[in-house]
Design a protein around this nucleic acid. Structure first.
Length: 925
RNA sequence: ACCCGGGUGGUGGAACAGGUAGACACGCAGGACUUAAAAUCCUGUUCGCCGAAAAAGCGAGUACGGGUUCGAUUCCCGUCCCGGGUACCA
């Protein structure tokens, strides 16, 4: 009987399915454990070997926790709305619902192959009306709430209305416009439309006009995190700034709570740092400067600075070109130069601004007056100051800020040095640790201390105040696309009116074409019935459905609520969340915000969704190359190339070759000729009769011909081998290259394990003899190590420990059921199929999935003595076995008698003998 | 440019609170079994020196240069390189 993994795996997968082995109940006396994988988008390309890495890790952890007596929720589903399906629809005429369905079924087949313990009864799809009904419902909760800054909580908008009626907006400053002030009387006198406009400026989900990232090629708006280096994350199309009517989430109101929440969760420092930087909280001050301009009634120039201590080093002001004040600043002499510059700025696309950062700007002709010494400071405009951050104007301190310094250099503006020797005249120095000079009343003060001195002064003088700013913007929440959740909103007379709950879900209508509607609207605007009902024509973005899916898994079939409160209280936070870092600032921030809002409104009992987050690394491709002599059909084996990748001084073309027709480095030449018509004429210059390929580690992608399909691997080696090998490759968090060759080692391990139980001729050879002390020691060492490794996600060392254990038991010829049964249970999370098969073959009843995890017992691994490394001056020279309870004196006596030690002592007396129990001994001469 | 990670054999990696560097595998080399192959098993495998070989021994060695320590892959300082994030955020 040999290890026929194909048959075994198919048999048990079918059996587990038939017996509902992975069904999870919401009612249990067991402690709960919620293990979650990041929501996959079912792409048409299918899975490559890198995708399941995180799923395998979470699967092992889930099965482990189950054996340890937990009720484990480990669900899977699909983030099924999104741009790629719609792009595919536009290009191929296939309705997104159809291609999505196909992709999901393909995806599912690939997942099933690997033997995951997902409870498929809980599968969710964001594009399913029974799911997006609740996405729409939560949207309405956000729409009907505002952020009460006094309690720092989402609060029903009805309470805001009550407050407005009593005291106007005194209690609640308008987040969208803090200049807005009205009394209770005024509120009551406003028209209903005006009242709605004001409320819109408070809502957590709101509609407004703003500068958005418009992507012409995709025909939609994108959120900040969907734009990378000025182009769209999906497709790499150019993105420009455009002022449009959009839905937004007022996530900025949650900035502080999103920051504070990071202290309670177990995320990597890198992840916390990324989120912290994205939120970008800074402490500074807004200062008003009087302006001296040729024009009258200019008003003050308000700047935002984090360094009020440098107020005497201000040599010029810079205003963002987009600001209205620019018009009032320009002098007659500068008017044409300013106009010219504004035209230039307008002509520059977002991408150009990103790509080439050249210093540009123009003097307006106006001056600001330093409130402390009356100095006239020239006001410039330049595109390096962003309209959207702070006040859109800065006070430039060239000696302390690099950009200001470059600007001053470029335009020959004299630099005032306020930090003495800390400034070398060539580079700005942003230090806070200099003693101020040339700074009047601040002279001799440490910059760090001067900040609050200046803040106190400007506040006392009434020309400014302390101010906290955030880099994060409100999140654009609408897309001018078809394949997304419709907004449950009607527009009546310019007022957004939410649909009543009873009309949810508002179903996405079927369409035949996906052309954009008129005036930058989405395809829904082309449907007469839709427009006639005055429904919103935008749809929600990809992250809408994924912002709360972890709650739906808990209670997926509930049609009374998005998730029953009792159920969400039982499951609580996700205990372990595994996924890639690419969602650091998008999905993770949005879902954290939605969770906080739902918590504030009392719908769930916790305000951080994920207790622990593990970021999986990427599995990279190991690409293979062939070298063709330029202009010929002749290919040269790698080992024959010269230094500079030439052959006999001839130029070579380095071409990617499909890794699936290369064994290690050796090219399958026949397969290569069949691979592409271009290569059918190929001739080879070989070394040792072989053609060897070059290699390089790159990202795994179809275009580099280095993708490996898990189906193939499972077919050749089985799911158990595949699972263990993915883990054996290295730590889950680290990126590492895939190398199919190495999988043999893991496969051999499973075969070796099999032979421990089964003899090819005799069949099952497991016996009921009692275990020896040695065997128990091997087993319990493995229990300790593997349990610990699994608990701390060190799956790679876990796999090695299995290998060590099986190697040792093989050496001991151990065939004892008492030992081997325990080993099988240990192995179940990693290789469930072979474990279940051997469990059954050795006569156990019931499924091994429900066995209980072995309990480590110290007594079996206790040693009485240790072979100590004995070092002389730190260099290990001997190994001496000494009883573990030896005292310092005993140890000294023993080692001084040792021949090797004596030789090294050479008659001298050691200065000191260091003895660290159970570690080592060091003799210092 | 800035902020995080990280540099360990031919390769993936191990050493989880400073204590025998290279676990476990891959690959490679040699051998056993076999008519042969596959499969399996055994031995060796950081580099250099010494040796016919083996054993033993010696020296160097965790990117590089310094430091702290009885002892450093691990801690500190400086330099170089690679990966990730951010990109005019005042």
């Amino acid at each position: 009987m040999e290890y026929s993994f194909r048959q075994i795996e198919q048999k048990w997968q079918a059996h587990w399915k038939a017996t509902n082995a992975y069904k999870v109940s919401n009612e249990s006396s067991k402690p709960k454990c919620y293990v979650l994988d990041m929501f996959p988008y079912p792409s048409g390309a299918g899975l490559h070997v890198g995708h399941p890495l995180g799923y395998i890790a979470s699967d092992i952890y889930s099965r482990f926790k189950r054996l340890k007596g937990f009720n484990v929720l480990h669900p899977m589903g699909y983030d099924a709305f999104g741009l790629p399906a719609e792009q595919y629809a536009i290009e191929h005429g296939v309705h997104p619902a159809v291609s999505t369905e196909q992709n999901i079924s393909n995806f599912r087949k690939q997942l099933d192959n690997i033997g995951f313990c997902f409870d498929w009864d809980r599968e969710v799809r964001t594009s399913d009306p029974s799911y997006y009904k609740w996405t729409q419902w939560i949207f309405l909760q956000l729409f009907n709430s505002f952020f009460n800054r006094h309690t720092a909580k989402a609060t029903p908008i009805s309470q805001l209305v009550e407050s407005f009626e009593k005291a106007g907006n005194q209690e609640h400053v308008c987040p969208a416009n803090n200049a807005l002030v009205f009394s209770g009387e005024e509120w009551k006198s406003f028209t209903p439309k005006r009242q709605q406009e004001i409320l819109m400026d408070y809502r957590l989900a709101f509609c407004g006009y703003g500068e958005v990232n418009w992507c012409e090629a995709l025909g939609t708006v994108l959120a900040n995190d969907e734009v990378v280096n000025g182009v769209s994350e999906r497709g790499g199309y150019p993105v420009e700034r455009k002022r449009l009517r959009q839905w937004y989430l007022r996530i900025t109101e949650y900035a502080d709570r999103l920051l504070e929440g990071l202290e309670q969760v177990d995320f990597s420092d890198a992840m916390k740092e990324m989120q912290t930087n994205w939120i970008g909280k800074s402490y500074g001050a807004e200062i008003d400067f009087k302006v001296s301009s040729e024009q009258e009634a200019v008003g003050n120039l308000r700047v935002y600075t984090t360094r009020p201590d440098t107020i005497f080093g201000v040599d010029f002001m810079v205003v963002a070109p987009e600001l209205d004040i620019v018009d009032h600043l320009k002098s007659a002499a500068q008017a044409s130069a300013v106009e010219e510059y504004l035209a230039y700025v307008k002509s520059r696309s977002e991408r150009e601004r990103m790509a080439e950062k050249k210093i540009s700007g123009v003097f307006t002709g106006a001056y600001a007056i330093n409130p402390f010494n009356g100095r006239k400071i020239p006001i410039w405009i330049s595109e390096y100051v962003l309209a959207g951050y702070g006040t859109g104007a800065i006070m430039a301190v060239p000696c302390g800020d690099e950009r200001d310094h470059k600007f001053a250099e470029h335009f020959n503006i004299p630099v005032t040095n306020i930090i003495g020797t800390h400034y070398n005249g060539r580079d700005a120095n942003p230090t806070k640790d200099a003693i101020l000079e040339n700074s009047e009343f601040l002279n001799g003060v440490l910059m760090r201390d001067a900040i609050s001195i200046v803040n106190d002064r400007i506040e006392a003088m009434g020309i400014g105040k302390r101010k906290v700013n955030y880099k994060m913007r409100d999140a654009a929440f609408s897309r001018q696309r078809y394949w997304g959740e419709p907004f449950p909103v009607q527009w009546k007379d310019g007022v957004a009116v939410p649909l009543p709950e009873s009309e949810l879900p508002l179903e996405l209508p079927y369409v035949d074409n996906y052309k954009p509607g008129p005036d930058g609207e989405g395809p829904l605007a082309n449907i007469p019935e839709w427009v006639a009902r005055e429904l919103e024509t935008n749809t929600m973005p990809g992250y809408a459905g994924s912002s709360w899916y972890f709650l739906r898994y808990m209670d997926p079939h509930n049609n009374q609520s998005f998730c029953d409160r009792k159920v969400s209280d039982y499951w609580g936070q996700v205990d372990l969340y595994i996924g890639g870092t690419e969602h650091a600032v998008g999905h993770l921030l949005y879902s954290r915000m939605w969770t906080k809002a739902l918590f504030d409104l009392g719908y769930i009992g916790h305000d951080e969704p994920y207790k622990k987050l593990v970021n999986q690394g990427m599995i990279q491709g190991s690409s293979r190359f062939v070298y063709r002599i330029h202009g010929t059909h002749t290919f040269v084996s790698r080992g024959l190339l010269e230094e500079e990748e030439t052959y006999q001084q001839k130029q070579l073309d380095k071409l990617h070759v499909d890794v699936n027709i290369v064994d290690g480095y050796e090219l399958d030449m026949a397969a290569f000729k069949n691979w592409k018509p271009d290569f059918s004429q190929a001739e080879f210059i070989l070394e040792d009769g072989k053609y060897l390929c070059g290699n390089e580690v790159e990202k795994m992608s179809k275009s580099k011909f280095n993708t490996v399909n898990p189906d193939q691997i499972v077919d050749r080696f089985g799911a158990d081998t595949f699972r263990m090998y993915e883990m054996f490759l290295g730590p889950v968090e680290i990126s590492k290259p895939w190398d199919t060759k190495g999988i043999e080692g893991v496969h051999r391990f499973l075969k070796k394990l099999w032979r421990l139980f089964i003899d090819e001729q005799k069949g099952v050879v497991v016996n009921n003899e009692p275990a020896t002390a040695e065997e128990l020691k091997v087993l319990h060492r493995a229990i300790r190590k593997i349990e610990d490794d699994t608990e701390r996600f060190s799956f790679n060392t876990g796999v090695s420990s299995f290998m060590i254990c099986v190697n040792e038991l093989s050496d001991l010829k151990c065939r004892k059921k008492v030992i081997l049964d325990q080993l099988l249970i240990l192995l179940t999370p990693y290789a469930p199929h072979i474990a279940e098969e051997l469990w059954q073959l050795t006569g156990n009843s019931g499924s091994i999935l429900d066995a209980s995890y072995p309990i480590f017992e110290e007594k079996y691994v206790k040693e009485s003595a240790k072979a100590y490394p004995v070092a002389i001056n730190g260099k290990t020279r001997a190994e001496i076995t000494i009883s573990l309870d030896a005292t310092q004196q005993q140890v000294e006596a023993i080692i001084l008698e040792d021949e090797t030690v004596k030789k090294w002592l050479d008659g001298k007396t050691p200065k000191k003998i260091i003895y660290v129990k159970n570690k080592m001994i060091n003799v210092v001469l």
